[in-house]
Design a protein around this nucleic acid. Structure first.
Lengths: 214, 214
DNA sequence: AGCAGAGCGGAACGATCCGTTCCACTGCTA
DNA sequence: TAGCAGTGGAACGGATCGTTCCGCTCTGCT
């Protein structure tokens, strides 16, 4: 392999470029499993030294921020893709299934508070909220979503799915799908007549994680 | 107040007896909020010194074990109480509501792995399982619980409710009740016809937490 | 009245743990 | 072939936390 300046590089450069990906993947895996894992765990998992990490990121906070922002972008992308789906209810459920599968919730909410967010993340988060609202509105319009369900019930739903975790990742995905199925059944208009109790979840109630904790 | 040897004591002894309770309450509050909180946080919250803690418990592990065992006993007690309820479905839902309110799940599952369990806890856990099965069986018999729901779906359900957490405890309770309502609606026979996906949660799948971790 | 000690507060200690830095080394790249 | 981008990993300094220990207070008994 290799050229002087082409796209595919051989030797050292190629390895370095590949490490970019390897490290990000390792970081995702490690921090999904434990949001406050040591940075050395990421290096180990990636099979590289610590220097390889610090060459790319100024510090742990940078890495976390990057990871979280990626998750946020993924959320937005999935939402946009879902809005292309013609069937309102399918768009809604498909979006949730993909977000749950990708474990986007753990990547975003569970990592919050460990770094200071950028302005761009704020904008993306806002856009994410708008898209989610659009999906919920369409689900409401389809008549399949119970009328007393609100956008922020998605927060509860995603949290519930993310909370399911067993050692085997594939099994985790299966169980989360089951959990999602139960929740969607519960949120559908078909289910029992008595309304959902308590004041519905509101806008600011899940942002508290974003305010610096430890 | 005070006598020489009566039941109500004044002064030092009384304070000590009262501290037993104060410390346990503080420990519950603190470790519910953060399962790996430092022991000093418990002392602070209780408004006592660290010595007051170490006078009562051999170490952190002892305290955690006690707390967890208490939660387990509470679970069993609520289940037994629920079985006295004549209405099958009400027994089922009432039990879950009380267990969710008391945050028993966080007290047991989330504290697991931080200590070596006693044999008695093993027995209590087994009894808990039997009682839960009895409640689910009755719920099935009532025809209100969808047939493809299994006992261990309760694990998913409780995890989902315990995952809901906001700074204000009372608000947390409300949101958990809402979550529970959605899940129960989803588990009721009234909901959609399509069966729950994936292999149902099985016996050993949630015990992994109990095997020592860190 | 006086004393022994139960009960306690909190400083201090030692063991980890973890983020970050630093330096020596390797093998491309120019 | 010279130089440096890229790297591995030891080492450091700070922080955290469980546990111990010492000195004090004030009670309950003689």
């Amino acid at each position: 392999m290799s050229t002087t300046s082409g796209k595919t590089l051989g030797g050292r450069r190629a390895q370095a470029a590949r490490n970019d990906e390897v490290i990000l993947e390792a970081a995702r895996a490690v921090f999904l499993d434990d949001p406050k894992a040591p940075i050395a765990a990421v290096a180990d998992r990636a099979g590289v030294g610590i220097s390889a990490l610090y060459r790319r990121y100024a510090g742990k906070e940078d890495l976390l921020r990057q990871l979280c922002h990626d998750g946020l972008r993924r959320y937005v992308a999935e939402a946009e893709a879902a809005l292309d789906e013609p069937d309102d209810w399918a768009a809604f459920t498909g979006f949730l299934a993909r977000v749950v599968d990708a474990d986007v919730h753990s990547l975003t909410v569970h990592l919050a508070g460990t770094f200071t967010p950028t302005e761009e993340m704020g904008r993306d988060a806002m856009r994410a909220g708008e898209l989610a609202t659009a999906l919920v509105d369409r689900a409401h319009a389809s008549g399949r979503l119970r009328p007393d369900a609100v956008v922020h019930d998605l927060g509860l739903l995603l949290e519930a799915c993310a909370a399911v975790r067993v050692p085997d990742p594939e099994r985790t995905r299966q169980l989360r799908r089951r959990q999602l199925a139960v929740l969607l059944a519960g949120l559908s208009s078909a289910s029992g007549a008595d309304p959902l109790p308590g004041p519905p979840p509101a806008a600011g109630e899940f942002d508290w994680r974003w305010r610096r904790r430890e």
